[in-house]
Each structure stands twice: as structure tokens, then as C-alpha cells.
């Protein structure tokens, strides 16, 4: 509730004077719950669903502050891992065999390099060594936004080091993150921008979480994932992140 009040106050007293990237992020963090509450979260589990062609597909997502991640999907009662990462290796279920398979070593390495992005790359960006830059304001989702560029080092593409950059669009009125985008750095879609659009924010243990996220390639229709429940700091069996013993 306190966060909603902060949000309300920021909306009322939002000024139009030029703000630095640092100030924008400070307000974004404040609106999100404040850095202490954010840092208190060590992991979270989201129960979600995706509507597709008349089917409701349940999805469960587990992430930890160490960058571990598991995305489980249930189709026709059959559960499979769309993607998992245990801090070292990335893997997922092969749809044909329904057996786990490891991702390429380069994909795992890139996951590792992005593993500091728990909750948001903007939280504790200095400690992560990220460089930020304020760009020209842009309108997204009909809303005038601050645009921030976050340089996070490099990723690998066929053994070559390529820049790892995210762009953040933060609502100028209430400092909520509306859109995050980054360039696809390898594969068939290389060069295209992938985007995540956030909405339906709700407060969980003092921290704002988006309960709706649409993932898409820029200018192409996307897929929305709707979160039903988010729980933080749960007891996790760490084994679930690791490639299963065969």
C-alpha cells in the first residue's frame, strides 16, 4: 500500500525538469519498493498462464538472486521445462523426446553473463558494473517515457564478443517500467529488437511486480503471460535448476 502511495505522490508531483539517468533510476527503485525491500527478495515463484488458440497453458517461473531460473510449462497435463539455468548450465526439455537437453555452451555462458539481472538490471546497477545513459524521451504504449540505455558488458556470438545492451522505458508520470528491450545478438533473428511490455502492477511484500508481461519482437504481435500469484522468498529445492541426472 505504501508503494501505491509513493506512486501516487510521484504522479502528482512529477516535474518536467531535466533529470539524470541516476535520478530516474532512483525514483524507479523507490516506486518499485525501495532498494532494501528489493534486496530482501532472494527468490520468487510466479504462477502464470498463457492463452493460446483456445488453450490455457499454465506456467511456473522460479528465479533466484543468484541468477538461477526455471520455467515450467504444462500442456495437456504434461509438464516440461521450457528453460532452466543453474548458474552454470542452461537446459530445457526437447519437445520431441520430452527429455532434457543442454543448451549450447555459448547460450549457457550468455545466461551466466546475464545472471545479475534478478528482478531488474536497474536494481543495484552500479554494483553490477553496468553503465547507464539517458537517451531522448520516447512515447511507448501511448505514454511519454524516459529512455535509459544500460550497457552490461558483452555476450558471445559465435565466439565473438558482442555488446550486451538493454533499453528501459520508464513512465515519466509514475516511474513505472513500461517496456524493456534489447537487441537479439545471435541466431536467425540477430539484429532485431526483442521487447517486454509490463502492466498490471501489484504490490507483493512491499515490492511492485508486473502481473502482465507481453514478449514480442519489435513491431510484431507478441504473447502475453498473465501472472496469477507471485510469492517471494520461498523454500526451493535447488536441484530443480540443474540438468537432471539421466
Amino acid at each position: 500500500m505504501k508503494k501505491m502511495l509513493t506512486l501516487f505522490c510521484l504522479s502528482i508531483f512529477s516535474f518536467t525538469f531535466s533529470q539524470t539517468a541516476e535520478e530516474i533510476i532512483r525514483k524507479y527503485v523507490e516506486v518499485s519498493g525501495g532498494i532494501n525491500k528489493v534486496n530482501n527478495i532472494k527468490n520468487f515463484h510466479s504462477s502464470a498462464k498463457v492463452e493460446q488458440m483456445g488453450m490455457t497453458i499454465p506456467v511456473d517461473i522460479y528465479t533466484t538472486s543468484e541468477g538461477k531460473m526455471l520455467i515450467k510449462v504444462v500442456v495437456q497435463g504434461m509438464e516440461f521445462v521450457q528453460m532452466a539455468f543453474d548458474g552454470k548450465e542452461s537446459w530445457g526439455t526437447n519437445f520431441m523426446t520430452m527429455k532434457p537437453e543442454k543448451s549450447s555452451s555459448e547460450e549457457s555462458e550468455n545466461m551466466k553473463r546475464n545472471s545479475k539481472d534478478f528482478m531488474s538490471p536497474l536494481f543495484n546497477y552500479k554494483e553490477k558494473g553496468y553503465q547507464i545513459e539517458k537517451m531522448s524521451d520516447e512515447t511507448v504504449e501511448g505514454v511519454s517515457c524516459f529512455k535509459l540505455k544500460v550497457s552490461k558488458g558483452t555476450l558471445l556470438d559465435n565466439s565473438a564478443e558482442v555488446q550486451n545492451i538493454d533499453y528501459f522505458y520508464i513512465d515519466k508520470e509514475n516511474y513505472l517500467l513500461i517496456l524493456q528491450e534489447s537487441e537479439i545478438t545471435s541466431g536467425e533473428m540477430k539484429g532485431k529488437m526483442e521487447q517486454s511490455v509490463f502492466s498490471d502492477y501489484q504490490e507483493i511484500n512491499g515490492v511492485l511486480f508486473p502481473f502482465s508481461m507481453t514478449s514480442r519482437i519489435k513491431d510484431v504481435g507478441g504473447q502475453t503471460i498473465q501472472f496469477d500469484k507471485i510469492e517471494t522468498n520461498i523454500t526451493l529445492d535447488e536441484k530443480m535448476f540443474s540438468f537432471p541426472e539421466q
Binding site: E141, L176, S199, D200, Y201
Partner: peptide, 12 residues
């Protein structure tokens, strides 16, 4: 048409 973006709370 929405005169304001819906960002807070559920919308279905």
C-alpha cells in the same frame, strides 16, 4: 480507446 494507460492492478 483508453484515455490513460492501465498500469496498476488487474485488467482482463
Amino acid at each position: 480507446y483508453l484515455s490513460k494507460r492501465h498500469s496498476i492492478g488487474k485488467m482482463t
